[in-house]
Design a binder for these strands. Structure first.
Lengths: 349, 349
DNA sequence: CTGTTAGCGCATTCAG
DNA sequence: CTGAATGCGCTAACAG
């Protein structure tokens, strides 16, 4: 009686009134139990070859798609990684994230992408959502205006890796660029070219990478016996348009300088545009050095001298480190990977 | 007896030997049932204000993070969307995806990002993984070398929207650019400037957008009584470097042309670099028109005439359409949004 | 080799 | 207003 009652109900399920086929649907068709199906589809050894084949065939015919959500709920592994960055539309992050995604794909992970637009509130919200979705780990370029969320992550022992930025006050896994050296290389290069008054177009100083580049700039001046002139350090943006406007403004102010070291290539390109408009020749009137070595530096006029950051590699190493941390989650060992930036001399200096 | 037996076990759980706090942990601390906690935290009405407060407070103290995986398993909604694109590192997609992510965030969705690198196999794998993760819908820029996965999606009634490319043989929700018109506008503009021999640097023709731009090119020639010369259509790439090499090669071949219409700005910029190297003046010796209007066209030398695609908006409209389709999933109505491209005349033509 | 049972964390019945 | 029972889809432990 009971069987007679349940069969039609189950069959209606097997008839797939619902969207996705489940193990149960297959089990009913194959006349076996759910977990036989489970084991068959996972290609376990302890199962009859005949039934396995039959089950697999039915699964295919029905278009079975395993429900990873359910799997994750049991296994406590989502095979998903959260990626929290400032802005995917910038060439820097888009290249980096490509490396992240490629690496993730190789290792069987998916990435959930979140933009913060350099707003701590958004970062906090992103981290929360990602934890709710039970990502196995996070890759974060922190906004650094606050750090509560990062501390939280540490306390909860969630695997995460900071990318491209780091905190002095918090020990974390991270992969960072030696930006002091980068800033130093860029500035020293200009000094060696004979420049004495070098304008530094700066990024937002809450980012460690921005103030480190500035620190490198200062150190180069110091080491070469040049005085640091505060008026020569300007800007607080990552937008090309802003750099363009700022440079125009600075030119109109009549500030004297013979070279520019910009926080990023994007800013450098914006500045160069302003220089062009002012009919200043590059590098004859003003030399320019950027940072990042984005693709377009090679085709700018003139091609831009810059400090190369291997962004794709940065992303790839970051994901590799993160996955390593996820796998041996027990270990409390923190790891930092340091990437050396490299001066690329082209025709703008 | 039974109670005495179960309490210590539960307390060990409430002691949080496990990573994440659950409703059960909170329930035990609060001395209520799991579902009272559930209702309290979801701010339901049918619950005592006192206990609600107490529960919320305990939840916060314990650092409760709801398990959305479990929620999704029940609700059959993951609040996650799969985004399948060619390559996030390209300016086109990175801008588009920014729009997608912003829109998704607004509507409470997360996005899982997958790159195909224009390989159908990867697209297929990406779609499979996304379905396994039970995304609520997909945004896809299909590789178009095959279409089985797309047909599959249709058959399974999974909500999806194609972006920027579309199939002639499959009716789908999609958001596309009128690329024939875009190609026409670019070419006609050059013709009106007096050009007769216009080189078209083409993208991979499996993409509908590439052959449509070419179709626009042809139509413009036709309408203006110019003959179509097959030798003037070259290229099959989306890489700047390739366009650069190709242009160099074409120049060395001695093919005569006075203008270039490139499939994308990236290709145009590569071509311009080759022209510069060959000491050809732009636009005097060779005029150049690109496509997309990426950020850097404004600062190239000279600033690039191009056909603007509102990429951010494209992404945003795509996600909005998709979310709409997800919400009223019953409806079989297919919707296509058409975006008009716009000629932006700068100094390269 | 296969079936039964239980539980991942949550929300939705349905009783009290 | 609150609790107990049930099930989302899957896997693991344990019997047989």
């Amino acid at each position: 009686m009971c069987a007679i009652l349940t069969i039609p109900i189950s069959l209606s399920k097997a008839g797939m009134s619902h969207v996705h086929v489940t193990l149960k649907d297959i089990a009913i068709r194959a006349g076996v139990s759910v977990n036989t199906v489970s084991r068959a589809l996972r290609n376990r050894l302890d199962i009859n070859d005949e039934t396995k084949k039959r089950i697999i065939e039915i699964a295919e015919r029905l278009g079975y798609t395993p429900n990873v959500l359910a799997k994750s709920l049991r296994s406590k592994k989502s095979k998903t990684i959260g990626v929290v960055i400032a802005d995917i539309s910038s060439p820097f992050y888009s290249n980096m994230v490509k490396g992240v995604e490629d690496g993730a794909q190789e290792k069987g992970y998916s990435i959930i992408l979140c933009n913060t637009d350099e707003q701590y509130k958004k970062e906090e919200a992103a981290v929360r959502v990602l934890l709710e979705k039970r990502v196995d780990g996070l890759l974060i370029t922190p906004v650094q205006e606050e750090n509560k969320d990062i501390l939280d992550l540490k306390e909860k022992r969630i695997p995460f890796v900071l990318v491209g930025r780091h905190f002095d006050v918090i020990q974390t896994n991270c992969i960072v660029v030696e930006d002091v050296i980068g800033g130093f290389l860029a500035t020293e290069h200009l000094i060696k070219k004979g420049h004495r008054r070098i304008l530094h177009i700066n990024g937002p100083l809450h980012m460690s990478c921005a103030w480190e580049r500035l620190a490198g700039y200062k150190r180069a001046l110091l080491e070469h016996g040049l005085e640091y002139d505060q008026r020569l350090v300007r800007g607080n943006t990552t937008e090309m348009e802003e750099a363009y406007k700022l440079t125009k403004k600075i030119l109109s102010e009549g500030l004297s300088f013979t070279a520019i070291f910009a926080f990023s290539d994007v800013l450098a390109l914006g500045a160069m545009h302003a220089l062009h408009e002012a009919k200043l020749r590059i590098p004859d009137d003003v030399a320019v050095v950027g940072y990042d070595d984005i693709e377009f530096t090679r085709v700018s006029c003139p091609p831009l001298t810059t400090v190369r950051i291997p962004r794709y590699l940065l992303g790839k190493k970051a994901i590799n480190l993160l996955v390593e941390k996820i796998i041996k989650k027990g270990s409390r060992k923190l790891q930092q990977i340091i990437i050396k930036p490299e001066l690329v001399i082209r025709e703008s200096s």
